[in-house]
Computed example of a mutant assay.
Amino acid sequence: MSMFDEQEEGEARLMGGGADADERAVEAALRPRNLAEFVGQERLREQLSLVLDAARGRGRSADHVLLSGPPGLGKTTLAMIVAAEMGVPLRITSGPAIQHAGDLAAILSSVSEGDVLFFDEIHRTARAAEELLYTAMEDFRVDVVVGKGPGATAIPLELPPFTLVGATTRTGLLPGPLRDRFGFTGHLELYEPQELEQVLVRSAGLLGVDLRADGGREIAGRSRGTPRIANRLLRRVRDFAEVRADGVVTGDIARAALEVFEVDGIGLDRLDRAVLTALCRNFGGGPVGLGTLAVAVAEERETVEEVAEPFLVRAGLLARTPRGRVATPAAWTHLGMAVPAQTPFAVPDGELDLFNTADEASGG
């Protein structure tokens, strides 16, 4: 059994069976297993290939790697590929799971020489554990504190050389000393539709789906530049094609299927449209606070901010300003509504900040 097969089996076991486990198993089966199979991110693949080839040539562990970018672009897959290319085991943990320095010390003490330790959401690691990572990454050593108070003793624990692959969606939340300890930092960009079509062709072959070129083009255009979403939509379109058609995924079939699953022409789903509709219809286009907007669509504030907003901002449909969330003229047009003569988007120069993550002075 390969490392990837063991990982897929472990993921399904952790999910506890059922439909969710089946979905996770299918997603894992679609993962590329080496850099040659990985579609897109050409510059990053070339850089990472050089790092790994050089490490293999020297017979040493690869430098620590930090991967950043939006969810669903392949950070976990690349971590698995790093381990596969180096021919070593992959160990997985995540920032939210590390709440104390002792949690991290226990994980690091079980790492063997050459192992790849994948640290997902590394920006959410507790500060005490974060500081323990500094010496672990740089000196391959951790100081285990025994006892409390004046009698506490720090016992140095030597670690074998290993490679830490960190993944984050928010690089800015990583402290400088931690970022500086990564020998290679790569950023994953959103995919172009043509690249997603290549992803879909590969996935369709693995799933046994008869995907026509116009069908792949239709799905790719609604996948928000994200391979994970493209693969998920492909599976839903496959279901529609098998149940209500002859199993062949054409452009017309893809459009009909995605209409049933409430994914529109540019990839907006039910939540995205609900946010835009509330912003335009209920609040006249804004500005409105995030908390108020979340109540209007009956969702948690974090769901609106982390799930819906990033794509709406990238698509130019919503803007974050110091006064609150504002609908752009493109949002009104996309919803089929007339753009008001005076839109709240026309804020004074210097106020508009598409990348402001705070909800400053917005009351919510």
Rank of each mutant, 00 (worst) to 15 (best):
D115A: 08
A62P: 03
D180Q: 03
R60S: 15
G149Y: 11
V263F: 02
V39L: 03
A36K: 11
T185E: 15
G72N: 04
P175M: 08
D63K: 08
R281E: 14
L14C: 10
D359M: 13
L73A: 07
Q194V: 13
A361I: 02
R255H: 05
V146L: 15
D252K: 11
R301L: 14
A204G: 01
Q99Y: 08
V145L: 06
A341K: 15
E189Q: 14
G166L: 06
G151Q: 14
E138D: 15
E300P: 00
E262C: 13
V209F: 09
D349I: 14
L290R: 06
V339C: 00
Q47I: 11
E85L: 04
D272P: 10
I122T: 02
F38R: 00
E121R: 07
C280G: 08
E6D: 15
L206P: 08
R33E: 01
R273M: 12
M15D: 13
N282Q: 13
R58Y: 15
A19T: 04
I81H: 00
A126C: 06
A167R: 01
L73N: 02
R33K: 09
R60P: 11
R33T: 02
G183F: 03
R170E: 15
R222L: 14
V243Q: 10
T168N: 03
G69D: 03
H334P: 07
L48N: 00
A126T: 09
G18N: 10
V144R: 14
M3F: 13
L290P: 00
V111G: 00
R238K: 14
R202Q: 14
V248Q: 09
V199M: 05
M15V: 08
G363M: 11
L206I: 13
R212T: 07
G102P: 00
V199F: 07
R45T: 09
A129F: 02
A128N: 10
R170K: 14
R273N: 08
T135S: 14
A341S: 15
G286E: 06
A101F: 12
R33S: 02
G284T: 08
P310V: 13
